[in-house]
Write a protein that binds this DNA or RNA. Structure first.
Length: 230
DNA sequence: AGCACA
């Protein structure tokens, strides 16, 4: 007989939604969601990202892809990806997200959770504004080690490449980046392993290379490419 | 460690 029951053990079956834990709990929810989006959008359209700061849900997030194939790629390729100094742990979510159920017509409203919604709903707009500002502050958490840029640099002709395996040579990197028009040079800094700068003639050329190489893995590691700060 | 639907 074939195994009709897809899910006997601890394996969780494919789902549009990935469940991520071991996230750095010091990161503010808004910034966390933004950064997750930046890192996972390469796998396909993201419908929703949910994260909460309550005790039971800190350090975790649910990221809903439009397509299951995107979720599968994300689970495989981003497993252990260093994110705010901690390796992400990624699984498929155990259950279907509401947003998916609504789309496929299977949504049935669940019991309303306890009266969660009652406590002081003050004007906290000011706090939110402050929090947004903090997302731009590199001094946050006192470290420069995050693989996530605090604020995305505007498009320009130089790419900033992160999560490069430490034993990668400039020559090796050049192999990948020089196949795109306008390539000028790769620069690596001895004192700062794991990163590289790649320069192109102009912004469009840099953009083309970035989009093509964004999903490149070297060894086990998923490259992360953004524009360099100038 | 912790699987929700702010």
């Amino acid at each position: 007989m074939e195994p009709e029951v897809a899910n006997q053990g601890n394996e969780i079956s494919p789902n549009n939604t990935i469940y991520i834990n071991n996230l750095n709990e010091k990161v503010k929810i808004d910034q966390l969601k933004q950064s997750l989006h930046a890192v996972f959008k390469q796998f396909g359209t993201i419908l929703e990202i949910l994260a909460f700061k309550t005790l039971k849900h800190k350090g975790q997030a649910w990221l809903v892809f439009k397509d299951v194939a995107s979720a599968t790629a994300a689970v495989e390729k981003m497993q252990g990806f260093p994110f705010y100094d901690k390796p992400m742990r990624i699984q498929y979510a155990k259950t279907k997200s509401d947003i998916i159920a609504k789309a496929d017509g299977t949504f049935v409203p669940r019991e309303r959770r306890k009266r969660h919604e009652e406590k002081g709903k003050k004007r906290k707009d000011q706090h939110d504004a402050n929090q947004a500002g903090m997302g731009l502050n590199p001094a946050y958490a006192g470290g420069a080690k995050s693989v996530i840029p605090e604020a995305p640099a505007p498009p320009n002709n130089i790419l900033f490449v992160q999560n490069v395996p430490h034993d990668t040579t400039p020559m090796a990197l050049q192999m990948f980046f020089s196949q795109f028009p306008g390539f000028k040079e790769v620069r690596m800094v001895e004192a700062k392993p794991g990163i590289a700068f790649v320069e192109y003639g102009d912004e469009m050329q840099a953009t083309v290379a970035m989009q093509s190489l964004q999903s490149l893995k070297i060894g086990q590691q998923q490259l992360l490419i953004t524009y360099a700060k100038k």
